[in-house]
Nucleic acid binder design. Structure first.
Lengths: 196, 196
DNA sequence: GACAGTATACCGACCGGTGTGTTTACATCG
DNA sequence: CGATGTAAACACACCGGTCGGTATACTGTC
């Protein structure tokens, strides 16, 4: 067979990762066992352990892939839908998030995963921390690029990230579908005040 | 013995609820089994099931009690530490939250629980929804009492609740200890703008 | 081209343990 | 006698992970 690239997955491995990702997101990490993953993916636990080594490693991969897909999604969204500059570009992150959340009724996968694995040595914790840092960095960078002086851009960017996180939690645990719209409006006001 | 008031717990029942509450908060619902709860409480599963009926019911009780304790804590804090009126009274909720979080390194128990039981028929889901609604109502009421016109008070109150939720998540999953300070500062700015 | 050895991908059965919840018999106390 | 509680075993299901094995493809040698 063709030599497999390092880091790529076999067909069964790919199905396992895809299936595990959907199940972990929908039901939670502990609620989904490896038996169920293997069966839903049409393969066996032996294959799962051959490919991934452990459930914890599979979870970390799930989180890592979701982080990559979210990052790519936001970058593409900003390229395709956002103004090239100004506060509209910052606010477009909320629009991207609203779009992303259309298929994500369980809210933030990282917050959910952290609820289960936070405070442990699970390898997924580092992925969650990295994703949260990336969200904050994104807002800080876009706020600075929108013209807010550097000193204020950090604080304002971090505030907008708080609204981002708060909106996700309020949408899901709080059952408020308009939380993202509200966060976006609050961000618009904070940005307008900073750019006066 | 004296007739027990409806809703009060026997000594073993109280120890079970206290122990279960600490373990659920620290480790998560699914990570803690009823065997472990009974053993840590110095009693047996027979007694646990006699008193509570099921693990799900115990979880719902844990969440309900935590909701009550948080509500009482905030009310007492506002009585003892907050100005009688004005924006300082609203901002004091963030101070109360900071105080509450000193013993709560796992962040919001309700958000964590929702990550595990959201999307299911678990009785705890209704408790979580009620707690989130209560937080939003608290901010809306205090913002109106601080002098913000009613029409704007709802929107602003809900925004401050977003900052509250975002700060909790950013503190825990995001590993940012100063998130609450930042949320409070953002809330102060939003309040100041609304009261101009 | 045939063959043996090796590598790769995958499988069903099995392991020891833990999960929620139930049952039985018994003890103690007011 | 009812309430509260205990100890131990049980039922059934599921948990994360391991084991020895099979099928197929590839590689080197003759």
């Amino acid at each position: 067979m063709a030599a497999r690239q390092p880091g790529t997955l076999t067909p069964a491995g790919q199905r396992l990762l895809d299936t595990a990702s959907a199940l972990f997101y929908q039901h939670g990490i502990r609620a989904v066992g490896v038996d169920a993953i293997a069966e839903a993916a049409g393969t066996t636990k032996k294959t799962l352990y051959d490919r991934f080594g452990s459930k914890d490693a599979l979870v970390a991969l799930y989180l890592g892939r979701r982080f990559e897909r979210w990052s790519a999604f936001v970058a593409a969204y900003l390229d395709e839908h956002a103004p090239d500059e100004g506060p509209g570009r910052v606010l477009a992150v909320y629009d991207a998030l609203a779009e992303w959340q259309r298929d994500a009724e369980r809210g933030c996968a990282f917050v959910n995963a952290f609820a289960e694995i936070g405070g442990t040595e699970h390898p997924g914790v580092a992925v969650i921390r990295a994703e949260k840092e990336a969200v904050r960095a994104l807002y800080v960078r876009l706020v600075a690029e929108a013209g807010v002086p550097e000193a204020a851009a950090t604080e304002l960017g971090l505030r907008l990230a708080l609204l981002h996180e708060g909106a996700l939690v309020t949408m899901t645990a709080g059952g408020q579908p308009d939380a993202l719209r509200r966060a976006r409006a609050a961000a618009a006001d904070l940005l307008a005040a900073a750019l006066r």
